[in-house]
């Protein structure tokens, strides 16, 4: 069990983080990730067992980014020809069920944080899409706050409602 104080600090960190995403502060959001961080989003398939459904790294994932490519994605979105998000979608992020544990095998003070995620995307006139899943982060204490060294986003959908043009 982590202390109520740690739980509170982590929750505040996560709330601030998704607010950055909703408000399009992508450069500030990038700063929350360590230089060696990895961002992974596996595919989901309908399989006989629950365990198999979340496909591992030998399967084709939706996303497998290092910090450099995350930076490139942000840079692209700032380009005048990035039609996919210009004009920008209106976004609302909901996170809940935040569980915080001391990380196993990490550096001292590292935390493993799980949360549920729901993102509502409203785009142009009437495009409305909802993405639902969970996130697994590893956080490292940094200057009184945290940095993300690893993020895994596991959506529940095997068929994505749309090509993903936003960050989770």
């Amino acid at each position: 069990m982590t202390s109520p104080d740690t739980q509170h600090k982590v929750e505040q960190f996560l709330y601030r983080e998704v607010r950055m995403l909703a408000e399009g502060e992508f450069e500030e959001w990038l700063d929350l990730f360590t230089e060696d961080s990895r961002y992974l989003m596996p595919i989901r398939e309908t399989t006989a067992t629950r365990e198999e459904s979340e496909r591992g790294e030998d399967y084709l994932p939706h996303v497998d980014d290092d910090k450099d490519f995350m930076r490139a994605r942000v840079q692209r979105l700032r380009h005048r020809l990035a039609h996919a998000e210009q004009p920008p979608s209106r976004l609302r992020y909901f996170i809940s069920n935040i569980e915080v544990e001391d990380a196993e095998g990490g550096e001292t003070g590292d935390l493993d944080v799980r949360c549920n995620l729901m993102v509502y995307q409203s785009r142009l006139e009437r495009t409305e899409k909802i993405f639902v899943g969970r996130r697994e982060d590893r956080l490292r204490p940094e200057n009184g706050s945290y940095q993300i060294t690893n993020r895994k986003v596991v959506l529940d959908q095997s068929l994505l409602p749309r090509s993903i043009t936003i960050f989770f």
Binding site: A82, H83, I164
Partner: peptide
């Protein structure tokens, strides 16, 4: 090759993202 594929013409790839916007708005 795996990374190249998913980062470009794929579900969250930076090429498919803009294509999707075209395909949807042409139809709408």
């Amino acid at each position: 090759v795996r990374q190249d594929l998913i980062r470009n013409q794929a579900s969250v790839g930076i090429l498919a993202q803009d294509d999707t916007e075209n395909f949807e708005q042409v139809t709408a």
